[in-house]
Amino acid sequence: MTDTHAMIDTEVQSNDVVLFMKGTPQMPMCGFSGQVVQILDYLGVPYKGINVLASNELRQGIKDYSNWPTIPQLYVKGEFIGGADIVREMFQAGELQSHLKSRGLQVRETA
């Protein structure tokens, strides 16, 4: 197990919601990452954003970690949820909200 893999694994296992993204939640550097940030912010769920552009090892390592070739990648309670398309589809279907709640996470209720 490489250092990068171990670092990713630690982040995924020790944070309830982790988003590996390009840029930061405050300043996404890619439209797809920005979409997921908007959804998580809308739901008011606390999450940790990790900028993969900070290191080439991380950028490649996260692709290997979940055998998923693209970024962003969302993890909830240690489990890989998906990329931007899947997160958006789940959000629109209400499945993301119910999934977060089923894992004991608070989601902002909207009228």
Binding site: N67, W68, F80, I81, G82, G83, I86, E89
Partner: peptide, 10 residues
């Protein structure tokens, strides 16, 4: 699953 669908395509 959605993840598996995308994995097959990727």
């Amino acid at each position: 699953s959605r993840v598996e669908q995308h994995r097959r395509i990727n």
